[in-house]
Simulated assay, not measured.
Amino acid sequence: MSKQEYSPFWTKNENKIDKNTLSIILLAHVQQPRGSINKDQLQCNETERFSIEEFNEIYQGIVAAGYYIQSVYFNELDFISDYIEHPARFQNCLIYNLARNGLGDNKKTIIPAFCELVGLNYNTSSSLSCALCRNKYYFTTLFRSHNIPVPRSWLLDKSGNWVNGFPSHKIQVICKPCSESASQGISESNIFYASLEKFKCFHGTSCIVQEYINGEECEVPVFKIGNSIEVLPPVGINLGKKKVLDEQTSADNNYDFYSLKETQSQQTINLICDYAKKAFNLMQMNVYGRIDFRISLDGKPYIFDISTTPYTTRHSSFAFDFNLMQFKYSDIYHAIITAAVKRQ
């Protein structure tokens, strides 16, 4: 989007939503004491849950956008149980889902799949897209076949077997869990020159080994409203002296944002936006999402991660972009809810 296009894109050629009849059901994992854990389901890690302050930002953002939150659930099973017992309560509701309990590729698929099954509208991509976008090796392989640039990648399975060959010892790589997000399992010690000895400590988990791209990192927020895909300006991640956004830095929000146009040419930015749109479309993503890039020192962008439920707290690339475009923080939630209601 150029500066001239910084307008409320979620209102273009769309009928207004009747906020008096639409209710929001909010699902989010929150750290104790507010969060409620159901012992019958597998729990996501503590660092993947919202702090109480972050949860309040999201809650108040939805309310400030003019929407009524009918109920809040802190885990998936309580929501599903309530729906099964009292389905009439969920008429004229939008399920605003930020839940991610479970394991591996299926962490974000439970609520989208359930909503599709019973005919509830929801705010994320489908369960298929959520699963594919979690598995870094699968979407990396798919992107490569469609000429979307990604780092060279190899898959190391749980038994310590290499699925598609082995990286050269001359290549600096980063080894990370194949199906995790929020920088789970990532630290600078995961970056090294390829070595059989180094890889031994990763046996027992499914890992993607990628060529480490030395350079900048950026996030690209994307919306789909109706049939229109809107790519927002790429946001650079200021990691200070760190090489990568590791798990602890991510959990502590110990990093800043900047407009990528401060460091990259317009040609590179246009290329990033084009690849982000292609990736979003190829993965059949919907409503909103985020495409993450590493940019080499010579200006070549590579997609290395995707999020189907990216953070929209005040410390996020979404909040940075909306502020850059002189929108209110609550407009993020107006855009997401509008996109969800208008989904095709």
Rank of each mutant, 00 (worst) to 15 (best):
Q4G: 11
P8I: 08
F9G: 06
K19Q: 15
N20I: 00
N20R: 12
I24H: 08
I24S: 02
I24G: 03
L27A: 09
G35A: 12
G35N: 08
Q41S: 06
Q41K: 11
C44V: 05
N45P: 05
T47D: 10
E53P: 03
N56H: 03
N56I: 01
V63R: 14
A65H: 00
I69K: 10
S71P: 03
V72I: 13
N75C: 06
E76D: 03
D82G: 04
I84P: 10
Q91A: 13
N92L: 01
A99Q: 11
G102H: 07
T109M: 15
I110Y: 02
F114R: 10
G119A: 03
C133D: 00
R144L: 15
P149Q: 01
V150M: 13
V150C: 15
P151W: 06
W154H: 12
S159D: 10
S159A: 13
G160W: 13
G160Y: 12
V163S: 05
N164Q: 01
I171W: 05
P177E: 02
Q184N: 11
I186C: 06
S189Y: 02
A194E: 09
F202V: 06
H203G: 04
G204C: 06
E211D: 10
I213R: 02
N214W: 00
E217M: 07
P221D: 07
P233Q: 13
G240T: 02
K241S: 15
K242W: 08
L245Y: 05
E247Y: 11
Q248T: 04
S250V: 00
S250M: 04
Y255S: 03
F257A: 09
Q267D: 11
K277M: 09
F280R: 11
Y288D: 02
I291L: 05
D292N: 09
R294D: 01
I295C: 00
D298C: 12
G299P: 09
P301F: 06
T313Y: 12
M325Y: 06
Y329I: 10
D331K: 09
I332G: 14
H334S: 15
A335K: 11
I336S: 08
A339M: 08
A340E: 04
K342N: 04
